[in-house]
Amino acid sequence: MKISIIQCSLVFGDVEKNFALIEKKIVEAAGETPDVIVLPEMWNTSFFPNNVKEIADIEGKRSKDLLSKLSKQFNVNIIGGSVANTIDGELYNTSYVYDREGKEIASYNKVHLFSPSGENKYFKSGSELCIFKMDGIKCGLSICYDVRFPEWIRKSALEDIEILFLPAAWPEVRNMHWDTLNRARAIENQMFVVCVNSLGMTENSKFGGHSAIIDPWGEYILHPDDVEEVKIGAINLKVIENIRSSINVFRDRRKDLYTL
């Protein structure tokens, strides 16, 4: 499976420029004929202006229209990062997933909201896992701060996912945490992790990039960097079978001592 990740500098609070940028980047990525294209978190507004609710998508309409059109046009699956989005008047951090035919196959409202930035004061939290099949492969999706909660990621792993997609808006100052947590989630759950972070600035923060594809051994298929680019890497799902047969942590769990 070929996976393209879009690491780009979003324009803080400018929805029009961000929609134009993301469409351009998806077209660029599609030129390499990947199986999947993955976007960063909150690509419509960046993370996040004070007027985020006023400029957010409404019921996902504009975002869904764009992702549906481009996935069908280029015969590619799109993991739609996430967007600021109102649902029944409530603000959510929402991800949409589209298949090659332009059909929405999954959506996810971010569960763990980043209280140090006040995200929990603006946004409503989701409450459900995101598990879906894409080209016959079982996948999961979480967003940014979710990665700090290993029990939440393990719940997805226990659904037998093989790839976890993780869009983010992670600050450069904590890049070491980002790199370490993503590798840990891949190793402990014996799955691929595809983590996509943005670049660019807000009024008081700088995003760190370091998007990557990590295999179940914790090795980088695509290495993290801070360059604005579309990157592509290929994964071999047989690696999962090999590691789970040699070090079967799921078999050896002590479910009599702890549960999820």
Rank of each mutant, 00 (worst) to 15 (best):
Lys2Gln: 13
Lys2Arg: 15
Ile3Glu: 06
Ile3His: 05
Ile5Ala: 04
Phe12Asn: 09
Lys17Asn: 14
Lys17Ser: 15
Lys24Thr: 10
Lys25Trp: 02
Lys25Ile: 00
Glu32Lys: 14
Thr33Leu: 13
Pro34Thr: 00
Val36Phe: 10
Val36Trp: 02
Ile37Val: 12
Pro40His: 08
Met42Pro: 10
Trp43Thr: 09
Thr45Glu: 06
Phe47Cys: 09
Asn51Trp: 01
Ile55Ser: 02
Asp57Asn: 06
Asp57Phe: 04
Glu59Leu: 04
Asp65Leu: 10
Asp65Cys: 07
Ser68Arg: 00
Ser71Pro: 05
Lys72Pro: 10
Asn75His: 14
Ile79Gly: 01
Gly80Asn: 01
Gly80Phe: 01
Gly81Ala: 00
Asn85Met: 07
Asp88Pro: 02
Gly89Ile: 08
Glu90Ser: 13
Asn93Arg: 08
Ser95Lys: 01
Tyr96Ser: 03
Val97Lys: 01
Val97Tyr: 04
Gly102Arg: 05
Lys103Pro: 04
Lys110Gly: 05
Ser117Gln: 13
Gly118Glu: 06
Asn120Tyr: 01
Asn120Ile: 00
Asn120Trp: 05
Lys124Val: 07
Ser127Trp: 06
Ser127Ile: 09
Glu128Trp: 03
Glu128Gln: 10
Phe132Glu: 04
Lys133Arg: 14
Asp135Arg: 12
Lys138Thr: 15
Lys138Val: 11
Cys139Thr: 01
Ser142Cys: 14
Ser142Tyr: 11
Ser142Pro: 09
Ile143Ala: 06
Ile143Asp: 02
Cys144Leu: 01
Tyr145Ile: 05
Tyr145Trp: 12
Asp146Thr: 06
Asp146Ile: 02
Glu151Val: 12
Trp152Thr: 03
Arg154Ala: 12
Ser156Pro: 04
Leu158His: 09
Glu162Leu: 12
Ile163Ala: 05
Ile163Lys: 08
Pro167Val: 07
Ala168Cys: 12
Ala169Tyr: 11
Trp170Met: 07
Val173Pro: 04
Val173Thr: 14
Val173Gln: 12
Trp178Gln: 08
Trp178Met: 07
Thr180Asn: 12
Leu181Trp: 10
Asn182Tyr: 06
Asn182Thr: 05
Arg183Asp: 09
Met191Trp: 04
Met191Asp: 05
Val193Cys: 01
Val196Gly: 03
Ser198Lys: 15
Gly200Lys: 09
Thr202Tyr: 11
Asn204Cys: 11
Asn204Asp: 15
Gly208Asn: 02
Ser211Glu: 02
Ala212Pro: 08
Ile213Asp: 06
Trp217Glu: 15
Gly218Val: 09
Gly218Arg: 11
Leu222Met: 12
Leu222His: 10
His223Tyr: 15
Asp225Ala: 04
Asp226Trp: 07
Asp226Tyr: 11
Glu228Tyr: 00
Glu228Lys: 03
Val230Pro: 00
Ile232Phe: 08
Gly233Leu: 03
Ala234Val: 14
Ile235Thr: 02
Asn236Met: 07
Lys238Pro: 05
Glu241Asp: 15
Arg244Leu: 05
Ile247Cys: 13
Val249Thr: 14
Val249Pro: 07
Phe250Val: 08
Phe250Tyr: 13
Phe250His: 10
Arg254Ile: 10
Lys255Pro: 08
Asp256Gly: 09
Leu260Tyr: 15
